[in-house]
């Protein structure tokens, strides 16, 4: 595929705020002058199901979805979902994940167990792996609910976009009463 384009995947569980995070990313890239497209499925998946948002940016983007094996960056909001979508990545892709674990129904019921070796298995395939205790870091920055933004800050260092565009995008996309804590969480994540 076109190497001029960066392919990002944001994955997690319905209700975690994945769509807002991907909107902030998309707005950032547009402000920085890139073409950008993103895609996700709403509907049934929002009832606690598995959610994946595709985002691509570059000089000119056609497809809004990332093909299997083409992902450059995986942005995981939940550990098991991070592992689930690894097949979408190319070799050597960058994986950043929140260590948060949300038990699916079969685990809640005690019929299956939540795998306890996921970080090791992720790292085995993707050495460029950053695992963050998002809730803890966000709590230290002021509010555990800003965990997604901590991760966003951590990813931002790896992308060739000036910080001012990130800040402007957050100002545009995040409700004003939650903005200051999110800006702080972003800085914290950026300096991890």
């Amino acid at each position: 595929m076109n190497r001029d384009i960066t392919n990002i995947l944001l994955v997690g569980v319905g209700g975690q705020g994945i769509l807002l995070a991907s909107e902030v990313l998309a707005e950032t890239f547009m402000l920085a002058g890139f073409d950008v497209k993103k895609s996700e499925i709403h509907g049934m998946s929002q009832r606690g199901g598995s959610v994946v948002s595709h985002l691509r940016y570059g000089g000119r983007v056609n497809s809004p979805i990332v093909s299997e094996g083409d992902g450059d960056i995986l942005f995981g909001f939940e550990l098991m979902e991070t592992f689930r979508y690894l097949p979408l990545l190319r070799r050597g892709a960058f994986v950043v994940a929140n260590s948060l674990q949300i038990a699916p129904p079969s685990v809640l019921m005690g019929n299956e167990s939540y795998p306890d070796d996921l970080p090791e298995r992720i790292r085995a395939g993707f050495p460029d792996f950053l695992l963050i205790d998002g809730q803890r870091v966000a709590a230290e920055a002021g509010d555990p609910r800003a965990a997604n933004t901590v991760l966003l800050g951590a990813v931002s260092k790896r992308l060739q976009v000036e910080e001012e565009y990130w800040l402007e995008a957050m100002k545009r996309m995040i409700p004003s009463k939650a903005l200051s804590i999110n800006l702080k969480a972003f800085e914290t994540g950026r300096n991890l």
Partner: peptide
């Protein structure tokens, strides 16, 4: 160009609820 680990089989599924 597939990923280094394609093995997400056997993972508990996460259906809507």
């Amino acid at each position: 160009e597939t990923s280094a680990t394609g093995a997400s089989e056997g993972l508990p599924s996460r259906p809507p609820n």
